[in-house]
Design a protein around this nucleic acid. Structure first.
Length: 448
DNA sequence: TTTTGAGTTGTTCGA
DNA sequence: GTCGAACAACTCAAA
Protein backbone atom coordinates (compact mmCIF):
# COMPACT_ATOMS: atom_id res chain seq x y z
CA UNK A 1 0.00 0.00 0.00
CA UNK A 2 1.75 3.14 -1.18
CA UNK A 3 0.59 6.55 -0.07
CA UNK A 4 1.59 9.95 -1.44
CA UNK A 5 0.78 13.43 -0.33
CA UNK A 6 -0.99 15.70 -2.81
CA UNK A 7 -0.27 19.20 -1.61
CA UNK A 8 -2.76 21.69 -3.06
CA UNK A 9 -1.61 25.29 -3.19
CA UNK A 10 -2.74 27.38 -6.13
CA UNK A 11 -4.33 24.52 -7.98
CA UNK A 12 -7.63 24.12 -6.17
CA UNK A 13 -9.32 21.87 -8.70
CA UNK A 14 -9.37 18.23 -9.75
CA UNK A 15 -9.87 18.62 -13.52
CA UNK A 16 -7.00 19.27 -15.93
CA UNK A 17 -4.57 18.70 -13.06
CA UNK A 18 -1.37 16.86 -14.07
CA UNK A 19 0.12 16.82 -10.56
CA UNK A 20 -2.98 15.15 -9.13
CA UNK A 21 -2.86 12.56 -11.91
CA UNK A 22 0.82 11.92 -11.19
CA UNK A 23 0.11 11.46 -7.48
CA UNK A 24 -2.69 9.02 -8.22
CA UNK A 25 -0.66 7.09 -10.78
CA UNK A 26 2.18 6.52 -8.35
CA UNK A 27 0.24 5.47 -5.31
CA UNK A 28 -2.68 3.43 -4.06
CA UNK A 29 -3.95 6.21 -1.86
CA UNK A 30 -3.32 9.92 -1.69
CA UNK A 31 -3.39 12.31 1.23
CA UNK A 32 -4.81 15.54 -0.21
CA UNK A 33 -3.80 18.48 1.94
CA UNK A 34 -3.97 22.25 2.08
CA UNK A 35 -1.64 24.06 4.46
CA UNK A 36 -2.74 27.24 6.16
CA UNK A 37 0.57 29.04 6.31
CA UNK A 38 0.15 32.41 7.99
CA UNK A 39 3.11 33.85 6.15
CA UNK A 40 1.25 33.61 2.87
CA UNK A 41 -1.84 35.39 4.11
CA UNK A 42 -0.18 38.17 6.06
CA UNK A 43 -1.19 40.86 3.56
CA UNK A 44 -4.48 39.33 2.45
CA UNK A 45 -7.70 41.09 3.33
CA UNK A 46 -10.84 39.31 4.45
CA UNK A 47 -12.39 39.27 0.99
CA UNK A 48 -9.60 37.12 -0.43
CA UNK A 49 -9.52 34.93 2.65
CA UNK A 50 -13.28 34.41 2.53
CA UNK A 51 -13.02 33.48 -1.13
CA UNK A 52 -10.22 31.03 -0.34
CA UNK A 53 -12.30 29.43 2.39
CA UNK A 54 -15.16 28.99 -0.08
CA UNK A 55 -12.81 27.56 -2.66
CA UNK A 56 -11.43 25.04 -0.16
CA UNK A 57 -14.95 23.93 0.69
CA UNK A 58 -15.60 23.35 -3.01
CA UNK A 59 -12.37 21.41 -3.42
CA UNK A 60 -13.24 19.33 -0.39
CA UNK A 61 -16.59 18.51 -1.93
CA UNK A 62 -14.88 17.35 -5.14
CA UNK A 63 -12.69 15.12 -2.97
CA UNK A 64 -15.62 13.56 -1.13
CA UNK A 65 -14.74 15.32 2.11
CA UNK A 66 -11.20 14.00 2.09
CA UNK A 67 -9.30 17.29 2.06
CA UNK A 68 -6.97 17.67 5.03
CA UNK A 69 -6.76 21.26 6.24
CA UNK A 70 -3.65 21.72 8.31
CA UNK A 71 -2.42 24.82 10.06
CA UNK A 72 1.31 25.52 10.44
CA UNK A 73 4.62 25.87 8.66
CA UNK A 74 4.93 23.68 5.57
CA UNK A 75 8.05 21.77 6.61
CA UNK A 76 6.61 20.80 9.97
CA UNK A 77 3.21 19.99 8.51
CA UNK A 78 4.58 17.85 5.69
CA UNK A 79 6.82 15.89 8.08
CA UNK A 80 3.91 15.39 10.41
CA UNK A 81 1.70 14.11 7.60
CA UNK A 82 4.43 11.85 6.21
CA UNK A 83 4.78 10.23 9.59
CA UNK A 84 1.08 10.05 10.35
CA UNK A 85 0.20 8.32 7.09
CA UNK A 86 3.42 6.60 6.14
CA UNK A 87 3.60 8.69 2.98
CA UNK A 88 6.87 9.73 1.35
CA UNK A 89 6.46 11.64 -1.89
CA UNK A 90 4.87 15.05 -1.95
CA UNK A 91 3.25 15.96 -5.26
CA UNK A 92 2.86 19.61 -6.24
CA UNK A 93 2.20 21.91 -9.15
CA UNK A 94 5.32 24.00 -9.47
CA UNK A 95 5.28 27.63 -8.38
CA UNK A 96 7.51 30.33 -9.75
CA UNK A 97 7.03 33.56 -7.88
CA UNK A 98 9.74 34.52 -5.36
CA UNK A 99 7.98 33.58 -2.12
CA UNK A 100 6.62 30.25 -3.32
CA UNK A 101 9.87 29.23 -4.98
CA UNK A 102 11.92 30.05 -1.91
CA UNK A 103 9.52 28.09 0.27
CA UNK A 104 9.73 25.00 -1.94
CA UNK A 105 13.53 25.11 -2.05
CA UNK A 106 13.67 25.35 1.72
CA UNK A 107 11.39 22.33 2.03
CA UNK A 108 13.68 20.30 -0.20
CA UNK A 109 16.69 21.38 1.83
CA UNK A 110 14.93 19.92 4.84
CA UNK A 111 14.98 16.55 3.11
CA UNK A 112 11.44 16.38 1.77
CA UNK A 113 11.02 15.16 -1.79
CA UNK A 114 8.78 17.38 -3.88
CA UNK A 115 7.60 15.97 -7.18
CA UNK A 116 6.70 18.78 -9.55
CA UNK A 117 4.21 18.16 -12.32
CA UNK A 118 2.77 21.07 -14.24
CA UNK A 119 2.43 24.70 -13.20
CA UNK A 120 -0.25 27.39 -13.15
CA UNK A 121 0.74 28.41 -16.67
CA UNK A 122 0.29 27.10 -20.19
CA UNK A 123 4.02 27.57 -20.65
CA UNK A 124 6.09 27.60 -17.47
CA UNK A 125 8.13 30.74 -16.75
CA UNK A 126 11.67 30.48 -18.08
CA UNK A 127 10.71 28.29 -21.04
CA UNK A 128 10.10 30.95 -23.68
CA UNK A 129 13.51 32.19 -24.77
CA UNK A 130 15.06 34.18 -27.57
CA UNK A 131 17.33 32.25 -29.94
CA UNK A 132 20.33 33.44 -27.90
CA UNK A 133 18.89 31.85 -24.78
CA UNK A 134 17.99 35.04 -22.92
CA UNK A 135 14.50 36.05 -21.79
CA UNK A 136 12.19 38.48 -23.52
CA UNK A 137 11.63 41.96 -22.14
CA UNK A 138 9.04 43.13 -24.64
CA UNK A 139 5.57 41.69 -24.80
CA UNK A 140 4.91 41.32 -28.52
CA UNK A 141 7.97 39.24 -29.40
CA UNK A 142 7.32 37.18 -26.26
CA UNK A 143 3.77 36.58 -27.40
CA UNK A 144 4.89 35.37 -30.83
CA UNK A 145 7.48 33.03 -29.35
CA UNK A 146 4.97 31.83 -26.74
CA UNK A 147 2.47 30.89 -29.44
CA UNK A 148 5.20 29.17 -31.44
CA UNK A 149 6.33 27.27 -28.34
CA UNK A 150 2.78 26.04 -27.81
CA UNK A 151 1.29 24.13 -24.92
CA UNK A 152 -0.20 20.77 -24.09
CA UNK A 153 -3.89 20.09 -24.32
CA UNK A 154 -5.94 19.68 -21.15
CA UNK A 155 -5.81 16.37 -19.33
CA UNK A 156 -8.95 14.65 -18.14
CA UNK A 157 -10.12 14.55 -14.55
CA UNK A 158 -9.42 11.35 -12.60
CA UNK A 159 -12.31 8.89 -12.52
CA UNK A 160 -11.59 7.72 -9.03
CA UNK A 161 -9.69 9.43 -6.25
CA UNK A 162 -8.58 7.09 -3.52
CA UNK A 163 -7.92 9.39 -0.61
CA UNK A 164 -7.24 8.95 3.07
CA UNK A 165 -9.91 10.26 5.38
CA UNK A 166 -8.74 13.19 7.46
CA UNK A 167 -8.73 13.17 11.24
CA UNK A 168 -11.25 15.37 12.93
CA UNK A 169 -8.80 18.16 13.68
CA UNK A 170 -7.89 18.36 10.00
CA UNK A 171 -11.46 18.82 8.89
CA UNK A 172 -11.81 22.28 10.29
CA UNK A 173 -12.17 25.00 7.72
CA UNK A 174 -10.91 28.47 8.44
CA UNK A 175 -13.58 30.97 9.42
CA UNK A 176 -12.95 34.20 7.65
CA UNK A 177 -15.89 36.49 7.57
CA UNK A 178 -16.65 39.08 4.96
CA UNK A 179 -16.84 42.71 6.00
CA UNK A 180 -20.26 44.33 6.05
CA UNK A 181 -21.60 45.03 2.58
CA UNK A 182 -18.95 43.03 0.74
CA UNK A 183 -20.10 41.01 -2.22
CA UNK A 184 -17.76 38.45 -3.73
CA UNK A 185 -18.04 36.09 -6.70
CA UNK A 186 -18.69 32.37 -6.21
CA UNK A 187 -15.56 30.27 -5.73
CA UNK A 188 -14.55 26.83 -6.90
CA UNK A 189 -13.82 24.79 -9.98
CA UNK A 190 -17.43 24.15 -10.85
CA UNK A 191 -18.36 27.83 -10.71
CA UNK A 192 -15.34 28.73 -12.84
CA UNK A 193 -16.14 26.19 -15.54
CA UNK A 194 -19.77 27.23 -15.59
CA UNK A 195 -18.84 30.88 -15.78
CA UNK A 196 -16.48 30.24 -18.67
CA UNK A 197 -19.07 28.21 -20.52
CA UNK A 198 -21.82 30.78 -20.15
CA UNK A 199 -19.77 33.93 -20.51
CA UNK A 200 -17.77 32.74 -23.50
CA UNK A 201 -20.90 31.65 -25.33
CA UNK A 202 -22.44 35.06 -24.90
CA UNK A 203 -19.60 37.58 -24.77
CA UNK A 204 -16.30 36.17 -26.01
CA UNK A 205 -16.94 37.19 -29.61
CA UNK A 206 -17.15 40.86 -28.61
CA UNK A 207 -14.41 40.68 -26.01
CA UNK A 208 -11.99 42.88 -27.95
CA UNK A 209 -14.52 45.73 -27.89
CA UNK A 210 -16.53 45.22 -24.75
CA UNK A 211 -13.70 44.38 -22.39
CA UNK A 212 -13.06 48.10 -21.96
CA UNK A 213 -16.56 48.98 -20.83
CA UNK A 214 -16.78 48.50 -17.08
CA UNK A 215 -20.55 48.77 -16.79
CA UNK A 216 -21.20 45.63 -18.87
CA UNK A 217 -20.28 41.96 -18.54
CA UNK A 218 -17.45 42.35 -21.03
CA UNK A 219 -14.72 40.41 -19.25
CA UNK A 220 -14.71 36.80 -18.11
CA UNK A 221 -14.01 37.68 -14.46
CA UNK A 222 -11.98 34.51 -14.10
CA UNK A 223 -8.95 36.24 -12.60
CA UNK A 224 -9.59 34.87 -9.10
CA UNK A 225 -10.21 31.38 -10.46
CA UNK A 226 -6.92 31.57 -12.35
CA UNK A 227 -5.09 32.91 -9.32
CA UNK A 228 -6.25 30.04 -7.10
CA UNK A 229 -6.00 27.50 -9.91
CA UNK A 230 -9.67 26.63 -9.85
CA UNK A 231 -9.32 26.66 -13.60
CA UNK A 232 -6.15 26.27 -15.67
CA UNK A 233 -5.35 28.65 -18.54
CA UNK A 234 -4.83 25.60 -20.73
CA UNK A 235 -8.50 24.75 -20.27
CA UNK A 236 -9.42 28.18 -21.58
CA UNK A 237 -6.89 28.21 -24.42
CA UNK A 238 -8.17 24.87 -25.69
CA UNK A 239 -11.55 26.38 -26.51
CA UNK A 240 -10.32 29.55 -28.24
CA UNK A 241 -10.66 30.03 -31.98
CA UNK A 242 -9.54 32.89 -34.20
CA UNK A 243 -12.25 35.53 -34.01
CA UNK A 244 -11.08 38.99 -32.92
CA UNK A 245 -12.51 38.42 -29.45
CA UNK A 246 -10.84 35.06 -29.06
CA UNK A 247 -7.48 36.30 -30.29
CA UNK A 248 -7.64 39.20 -27.84
CA UNK A 249 -8.53 36.85 -25.00
CA UNK A 250 -5.58 34.61 -25.86
CA UNK A 251 -3.35 37.68 -25.75
CA UNK A 252 -4.61 38.53 -22.28
CA UNK A 253 -3.69 35.06 -21.07
CA UNK A 254 -0.30 35.67 -22.65
CA UNK A 255 0.07 38.86 -20.60
CA UNK A 256 -0.37 36.83 -17.46
CA UNK A 257 2.31 34.41 -18.66
CA UNK A 258 4.61 37.21 -19.79
CA UNK A 259 4.54 38.93 -16.42
CA UNK A 260 5.09 35.62 -14.62
CA UNK A 261 8.11 35.10 -16.88
CA UNK A 262 9.42 38.62 -16.25
CA UNK A 263 9.12 38.26 -12.49
CA UNK A 264 10.79 34.85 -12.68
CA UNK A 265 13.74 36.41 -14.51
CA UNK A 266 13.84 39.56 -12.35
CA UNK A 267 12.68 38.26 -8.99
CA UNK A 268 13.11 41.53 -7.10
CA UNK A 269 10.72 43.45 -9.35
CA UNK A 270 7.74 42.55 -7.18
CA UNK A 271 8.82 45.45 -4.99
CA UNK A 272 11.64 47.19 -6.81
CA UNK A 273 11.63 49.31 -9.94
CA UNK A 274 12.13 47.27 -13.10
CA UNK A 275 13.70 50.42 -14.59
CA UNK A 276 15.97 51.56 -11.75
CA UNK A 277 16.22 55.21 -12.76
CA UNK A 278 12.60 55.68 -11.64
CA UNK A 279 13.74 55.16 -8.06
CA UNK A 280 15.46 58.55 -8.40
CA UNK A 281 12.34 60.42 -9.39
CA UNK A 282 10.73 62.95 -7.04
CA UNK A 283 7.65 61.54 -5.34
CA UNK A 284 5.29 62.95 -2.75
CA UNK A 285 4.82 61.45 0.68
CA UNK A 286 1.53 59.61 1.21
CA UNK A 287 -0.84 61.69 3.30
CA UNK A 288 -4.42 62.84 3.11
CA UNK A 289 -4.58 62.51 -0.67
CA UNK A 290 -3.57 58.86 -0.43
CA UNK A 291 -6.39 58.33 2.07
CA UNK A 292 -8.81 59.95 -0.34
CA UNK A 293 -7.64 57.64 -3.12
CA UNK A 294 -8.02 54.57 -0.90
CA UNK A 295 -11.54 55.45 0.23
CA UNK A 296 -12.81 56.48 -3.21
CA UNK A 297 -13.38 60.14 -2.32
CA UNK A 298 -11.10 61.95 -4.76
CA UNK A 299 -13.91 63.89 -6.40
CA UNK A 300 -13.15 62.20 -9.75
CA UNK A 301 -16.23 60.03 -10.31
CA UNK A 302 -14.67 57.31 -12.43
CA UNK A 303 -11.74 56.92 -10.02
CA UNK A 304 -14.02 56.85 -6.99
CA UNK A 305 -16.40 54.34 -8.55
CA UNK A 306 -13.49 52.05 -9.28
CA UNK A 307 -12.01 52.27 -5.78
CA UNK A 308 -15.40 51.66 -4.22
CA UNK A 309 -15.87 48.63 -6.47
CA UNK A 310 -12.58 47.28 -5.15
CA UNK A 311 -13.58 47.83 -1.53
CA UNK A 312 -16.95 46.23 -2.01
CA UNK A 313 -16.21 43.34 -4.35
CA UNK A 314 -12.50 42.66 -4.02
CA UNK A 315 -12.32 43.07 -7.76
CA UNK A 316 -11.91 45.98 -10.15
CA UNK A 317 -12.44 46.18 -13.88
CA UNK A 318 -9.14 46.21 -15.75
CA UNK A 319 -9.77 49.53 -17.47
CA UNK A 320 -10.51 51.03 -14.08
CA UNK A 321 -7.32 49.54 -12.61
CA UNK A 322 -5.29 51.47 -15.14
CA UNK A 323 -7.13 54.69 -14.48
CA UNK A 324 -6.82 54.57 -10.68
CA UNK A 325 -3.19 53.50 -10.96
CA UNK A 326 -2.41 56.36 -13.30
CA UNK A 327 -4.19 58.72 -10.92
CA UNK A 328 -2.14 57.59 -7.94
CA UNK A 329 1.17 57.80 -9.77
CA UNK A 330 0.69 60.75 -12.12
CA UNK A 331 -1.89 62.93 -10.42
CA UNK A 332 -0.92 62.33 -6.79
CA UNK A 333 2.79 61.68 -7.53
CA UNK A 334 2.96 58.71 -5.18
CA UNK A 335 5.12 55.64 -5.69
CA UNK A 336 3.44 52.69 -7.41
CA UNK A 337 4.30 50.34 -4.53
CA UNK A 338 1.77 52.13 -2.31
CA UNK A 339 -1.02 51.30 -4.71
CA UNK A 340 0.33 47.85 -5.36
CA UNK A 341 0.22 47.03 -1.66
CA UNK A 342 -3.30 48.38 -1.32
CA UNK A 343 -4.39 46.17 -4.21
CA UNK A 344 -2.65 43.24 -2.55
CA UNK A 345 -4.84 43.71 0.51
CA UNK A 346 -8.10 44.11 -1.34
CA UNK A 347 -7.98 42.11 -4.55
CA UNK A 348 -9.30 38.58 -4.39
CA UNK A 349 -7.44 37.81 -7.60
CA UNK A 350 -4.16 39.29 -6.33
CA UNK A 351 -1.28 37.78 -8.27
CA UNK A 352 2.14 39.14 -7.47
CA UNK A 353 3.47 39.12 -11.04
CA UNK A 354 0.42 40.60 -12.75
CA UNK A 355 -0.16 43.13 -10.01
CA UNK A 356 3.39 44.41 -9.62
CA UNK A 357 4.04 44.60 -13.33
CA UNK A 358 0.64 46.03 -14.12
CA UNK A 359 1.46 48.84 -11.72
CA UNK A 360 4.94 49.25 -13.15
CA UNK A 361 3.46 49.47 -16.62
CA UNK A 362 1.21 52.33 -15.58
CA UNK A 363 3.97 54.08 -13.69
CA UNK A 364 6.11 53.90 -16.82
CA UNK A 365 8.93 52.00 -15.12
CA UNK A 366 7.95 48.54 -16.34
CA UNK A 367 8.76 46.40 -19.37
CA UNK A 368 6.82 48.67 -21.69
CA UNK A 369 8.94 51.76 -22.27
CA UNK A 370 5.99 54.04 -21.71
CA UNK A 371 5.92 57.18 -23.83
CA UNK A 372 6.20 60.17 -21.54
CA UNK A 373 2.97 61.59 -22.85
CA UNK A 374 0.85 58.62 -21.80
CA UNK A 375 -0.94 60.13 -18.83
CA UNK A 376 -4.50 58.96 -18.38
CA UNK A 377 -7.08 61.70 -18.06
CA UNK A 378 -9.52 60.42 -15.41
CA UNK A 379 -12.35 62.52 -16.81
CA UNK A 380 -11.81 61.57 -20.46
CA UNK A 381 -11.46 57.89 -19.57
CA UNK A 382 -14.82 58.09 -17.85
CA UNK A 383 -16.45 59.82 -20.81
CA UNK A 384 -14.98 57.35 -23.25
CA UNK A 385 -15.63 54.06 -21.46
CA UNK A 386 -18.62 54.94 -19.26
CA UNK A 387 -20.42 57.53 -21.41
CA UNK A 388 -23.78 57.23 -19.65
CA UNK A 389 -22.26 56.92 -16.21
CA UNK A 390 -23.81 53.52 -15.50
CA UNK A 391 -20.66 52.26 -13.84
CA UNK A 392 -20.25 55.42 -11.77
CA UNK A 393 -23.86 55.40 -10.58
CA UNK A 394 -23.57 51.79 -9.49
CA UNK A 395 -20.86 52.63 -6.96
CA UNK A 396 -21.28 56.35 -6.32
CA UNK A 397 -24.94 56.81 -5.42
CA UNK A 398 -24.38 60.49 -4.58
CA UNK A 399 -24.23 61.10 -8.32
CA UNK A 400 -27.23 59.00 -9.33
CA UNK A 401 -29.29 62.04 -10.34
CA UNK A 402 -26.79 63.37 -12.85
CA UNK A 403 -27.00 62.86 -16.60
CA UNK A 404 -24.28 61.21 -18.64
CA UNK A 405 -23.20 64.64 -19.82
CA UNK A 406 -22.83 65.97 -16.28
CA UNK A 407 -21.61 63.02 -14.30
CA UNK A 408 -17.93 63.09 -15.23
CA UNK A 409 -17.45 66.65 -14.01
CA UNK A 410 -20.00 67.09 -11.23
CA UNK A 411 -18.30 70.26 -10.00
CA UNK A 412 -19.55 72.00 -13.15
CA UNK A 413 -23.17 71.27 -12.43
CA UNK A 414 -25.08 74.54 -12.19
CA UNK A 415 -26.16 75.28 -8.66
CA UNK A 416 -23.78 72.72 -7.27
CA UNK A 417 -24.38 69.37 -5.67
CA UNK A 418 -25.88 68.79 -2.37
CA UNK A 419 -25.21 65.12 -1.84
CA UNK A 420 -21.91 65.33 -0.05
CA UNK A 421 -19.81 64.34 -3.04
CA UNK A 422 -16.35 65.89 -2.69
CA UNK A 423 -14.77 68.47 -4.95
CA UNK A 424 -11.83 67.17 -6.99
CA UNK A 425 -8.71 66.88 -4.83
CA UNK A 426 -6.37 68.04 -7.60
CA UNK A 427 -6.38 69.88 -10.90
CA UNK A 428 -5.65 67.16 -13.41
CA UNK A 429 -4.26 69.44 -16.13
CA UNK A 430 -1.80 70.94 -13.63
CA UNK A 431 -0.71 67.59 -12.21
CA UNK A 432 -0.22 66.16 -15.67
CA UNK A 433 2.31 68.89 -16.42
CA UNK A 434 3.94 68.37 -13.05
CA UNK A 435 4.21 64.67 -13.74
CA UNK A 436 5.83 65.24 -17.12
CA UNK A 437 8.29 67.65 -15.53
CA UNK A 438 9.36 65.10 -12.93
CA UNK A 439 9.79 62.49 -15.62
CA UNK A 440 11.99 64.88 -17.57
CA UNK A 441 14.29 65.16 -14.56
CA UNK A 442 15.21 61.49 -14.69
CA UNK A 443 15.86 61.32 -18.39
CA UNK A 444 19.23 59.80 -18.90
CA UNK A 445 21.80 62.52 -19.38
CA UNK A 446 24.02 62.10 -22.45
CA UNK A 447 27.10 60.12 -21.59
CA UNK A 448 30.28 61.99 -22.27
C1' DT B 1 28.76 44.25 -35.41
C1' DT B 2 25.56 47.18 -37.34
C1' DT B 3 21.25 48.48 -38.78
C1' DT B 4 16.45 48.69 -38.87
C1' DG B 5 11.81 48.49 -37.39
C1' DA B 6 8.86 48.44 -33.71
C1' DG B 7 6.91 49.10 -29.14
C1' DT B 8 -1.17 47.15 -25.25
C1' DT B 9 -4.32 50.07 -23.28
C1' DG B 10 -3.36 58.20 -24.49
C1' DT B 11 -4.31 63.18 -25.00
C1' DT B 12 -4.50 67.44 -27.17
C1' DC B 13 -4.88 70.55 -30.74
C1' DG B 14 -6.28 72.36 -34.90
C1' DA B 15 -8.58 71.71 -39.25
C1' DG C 1 -18.62 66.29 -33.41
C1' DT C 2 -14.84 63.89 -36.03
C1' DC C 3 -10.31 63.12 -37.65
C1' DG C 4 -5.35 63.03 -38.20
C1' DA C 5 -1.06 64.61 -36.64
C1' DA C 6 2.08 65.56 -33.12
C1' DC C 7 3.80 64.55 -28.87
C1' DA C 8 10.88 62.09 -27.59
C1' DA C 9 13.86 59.38 -27.12
C1' DC C 10 15.20 54.90 -26.10
C1' DT C 11 15.52 50.04 -25.79
C1' DC C 12 14.73 45.75 -27.58
C1' DA C 13 14.55 42.03 -31.05
C1' DA C 14 15.85 40.36 -35.14
C1' DA C 15 17.84 40.55 -39.60
Amino acid sequence: MKRSIMWFRRDLRIGDHPALLAALAESDEIVPIFILDEKFFAQAGTKRLAYLANSLRELNRSLDDRLHIVQGKPIAVLKQMQELYGAQDVHISEEFEPLGRARDLEIEKAGITLIRTGSPYAVAPGRVRKPDGTNYRVYTPFYKAWVTHGWRGPVTAPKLINAVEPTKEHQEFPHWHLPEGALITPAGEHAALLRWKQWSKEHLRDYNEMRNVPSVDGTSRLSAALKFGEIHPRTLLATLGDSDGEVTYRKEIAWREFYADVLFNYPTTDKEYYAPRFAQMRYDEPGDLFERWKSGTTGFPFVDAAMRQLLKEGWMHNRARMVVASFLVKDLHLEWQLGERFFEQHLIDYDVASNAHGWQWTAGCGTDASPYYRVFNPIEQGRKFDPDGHYIKRYVPELAQLSGAEIHEPWKVIGGLDHGYPDPVVDHAKERIESLARLAEIKESPSS
